[in-house]
Computed example of a mutant assay.
Amino acid sequence: MSEETAPTMTARERRHAKARETFIEVLRQSCNVTAACRASKIPRATAYYWRNELPEFAKAWEDAEEEAGDTLEQVAWDRAVNGNSDRMLEILLKGHRPEKYTDRLRAEHTGRNGGPIQHEQVASDADAFTRTIAGLAARGSEGSGTGEAET
């Protein structure tokens, strides 16, 4: 007899043990926390509390989700072999096995015409900024004539 079903357990402890057992079984079949909570007659907060506080329950939860993912994968395989297509099944697989089924995007950055990215060092002190502005102003005044002779 396991510790959870030992005769020394209180009625409350036995109810909680039974609720945890039911929760894990329904989670294994459905991979749905809400359905598992309803079947065990516990609030979601209780399920998450147990998962955070009881390492054995957390491990059973993880195992149940893995088994549910295995079931989804088997259904996907069966449907692929039989020639059927089901978008919802794809979504479920991506949700339960993202490391295996998620979309991947690769982005590369390049400069103009596919060349390297050009880097320009910007002046970091006020004197360099002032020299740059003065140089621009000087160039601007040289070419600002209208082409008419002054009288």
Rank of each mutant, 00 (worst) to 15 (best):
R44I: 07
G140R: 12
L136K: 08
P116N: 12
H96C: 13
A68F: 12
L136C: 07
M1D: 06
G135F: 00
R12L: 02
E142Q: 11
K94I: 13
A134I: 08
A80R: 03
G115C: 01
A76F: 10
P43L: 05
M88W: 07
R131Q: 15
C31A: 15
I42H: 02
T146C: 10
E67G: 01
R104F: 14
R106N: 14
W61P: 03
L93N: 13
W77I: 09
D78V: 06
S30Q: 14
R87A: 12
D125G: 07
T71L: 14
R12S: 03
R112I: 06
R112N: 05
E108C: 06
T5G: 00
L54W: 09
S144I: 10
I133P: 02
K100G: 02
A134K: 14
C31M: 04
A47D: 01
E65I: 11
A17M: 07
A128C: 03
S124D: 09
A47G: 03
A39R: 10
R38F: 08
G145C: 06
G143N: 12
S85L: 05
R51G: 02
D125K: 05
L54V: 14
I117F: 06
V75C: 00
A35Q: 14
A107W: 11
R28V: 00
E67C: 05
Q121F: 01
H96A: 12
K59V: 08
C37W: 01
M9A: 06
H16L: 02
E67M: 11
E90R: 12
G115P: 02
L105Q: 12
F57S: 09
A11I: 05
A126K: 04
E99W: 08
G69A: 15
E90K: 08
F23D: 03
T22V: 14
T8A: 04
A36K: 03
E25D: 15
L136N: 09
Y48G: 01
D86H: 10
G143K: 12
W50A: 04
V81T: 06
M1L: 02
G145H: 12
P43H: 10
E56M: 04
T8S: 04
V81L: 13
G95T: 05
H109Y: 15
A60M: 08
Q74K: 13
A76N: 02
R131M: 14
R79G: 00
H96Q: 10
M88K: 03
E150P: 05
W50C: 06
P43T: 01
E62Q: 15
I24Q: 05
K94S: 12
V33G: 01
H119S: 09
A64M: 08
E67A: 11
M1W: 00
E3W: 01
V33Y: 10
I117Y: 04
V26I: 14
I42C: 04
T22Y: 13
L93C: 12
G114S: 10
F129N: 02
G135E: 15
G143D: 11
L89Y: 14
G95K: 04
R28D: 13
P116S: 14
L105E: 09
L27W: 07
A58F: 11
A123K: 05
Y48P: 00
V81G: 03
R104N: 05
W77Q: 13
G69W: 13
F129V: 13
A19V: 06
R15H: 03
E13G: 03
R112K: 13
